[in-house]
Write a protein that binds this DNA or RNA. Sequence first.
DNA 1: GTCTCTGTACATTGTACACGTACAGCATAC
DNA 2: GTATGCTGTACGTGTACAATGTACAGAGAC
Lengths: 139, 139
Amino acid sequence: MQSAPHIRIDVSSQTPAYEQIAGEIRALLVSGQLGPGWRLPTVRQLALDLNVHHNTVAQAYRVLAAEGWLELRRGRGVRVVQRAKPAAPGAKARRRFQTQLNRLLAKAAAEGISPSAIARQLALHARDVRNWAPAKGSN
Amino acid sequence: MQSAPHIRIDVSSQTPAYEQIAGEIRALLVSGQLGPGWRLPTVRQLALDLNVHHNTVAQAYRVLAAEGWLELRRGRGVRVVQRAKPAAPGAKARRRFQTQLNRLLAKAAAEGISPSAIARQLALHARDVRNWAPAKGSN
DNA sequence: GTCTCTGTACATTGTACACGTACAGCATAC
DNA sequence: GTATGCTGTACGTGTACAATGTACAGAGAC
């Protein structure tokens, strides 16, 4: 029931602010750092913290609500809810993930991050990811 | 000196077409599947293949030319050139990479891809990445 | 020179992001 | 119960950018 951990976005980034906000919060949700019952800051409060417009935060919240993570209620704030387990991903989703990962790694390498450093990061994240949830299925 | 391997983009994706094209080619360049001396398809040819406008392909090529991968010459086509080794990345670049990787993995998990499947993909890519280039520095 | 290939420049159109402002639902104090 | 102040939401606007249509300019074959 505490307030959400700190979130940071980069206004100079080319990825939209609302998408960055949604992405940050989604990461907290997926990793379990934010669970059902928690309250998120109000759209105006988070907007103040991040120095954006409250409608921008609202858009991010709506994205997550559409995914089933949040419940938005006028006058009452935003709550994290128990989310239904998502359907098994199609081949398209898996392929898209692979493509995006590939492009991200290539961009990192092009920026000068060494292959070994990239591989190290991947290994670290792989370890973290395994702790996110008890892998039930086998997709 | 052959023509480039096949490239595929997703018009329904929200990432711009020119960025997808640049990303795909960059991945080929970084991994060494495309090296100095190779010729890329003309902007009009690749535009036909991908079903986009040739100016869109040109924009992708310019992105890569700005990064030092390609040489564009009017009337002569596009060549892959020897690229100067990029400067060591700043802390900001590394942090941005980490953030984007984190968000990508969270999104994949939210779409239903299991943590174990994600971790497996990470391990596979980590192996590939190590073969990209002889890691000289230690960043 | 002429033709045809190449990449490039520029104007136009559609779309999406971020914002300002006003509104509507809910909780609380009194 | 009513007033007040909080909440998220709806809508219009300015701006930026992606993708395109069209016309141009450099390079080579003949």
